[in-house]
């Protein structure tokens, strides 16, 4: 393990933790899903760092690819409905917070 290895691993791990926090703390579905896809890709990189190429191959195809399209589809499906129906009572209560949304 050289210093460069430690720096790389440290930055990778911190980025993963930061992406996980941002994914779950965010309020915009679409943005959170994209952050999660980035998380999946970097997890695949972590598998390579840990000498697990078998897992990295599967993770790159599934974690970032297939899970990503599934989540994007669900986010699209639920966003339209959030706009029209589910947030109606929320909007009545909370006009101001709706201002920053991405709809």
């Amino acid at each position: 393990m050289t210093i460069a290895d430690w720096i790389f691993d440290g930055v990778l791990v911190l980025t993963l933790v930061w992406l996980a926090l941002r994914t779950l703390a965010g309020g915009q579905l679409f943005k959170s899903v994209v952050l999660y896809i980035a998380y999946g890709l970097l997890v695949a990189l972590a598998w390579v760092r840990l000498s697990a190429p078998d897992i990295a191959l599967a993770e790159a195809a599934i974690g970032a690819g297939i899970t990503g399209v599934l989540l994007l589809d669900a986010a699209g499906h639920m966003r339209g409905s959030i706009e029209s129906r589910s947030s109606r009572n929320l909007r009545a209560r909370n006009q101001s917070a709706e201002g920053g949304e991405d709809g």
Binding site: G26, G27, L29, M78, I82, S86, S87, N94, E98, D102
Partner: peptide, 13 residues
């Protein structure tokens, strides 16, 4: 119920 519901679009940040 609506009491604990979040909009999904807003919150945080």
């Amino acid at each position: 119920s609506a009491d604990t519901m979040e909009g999904g679009e807003d919150a945080a940040e």
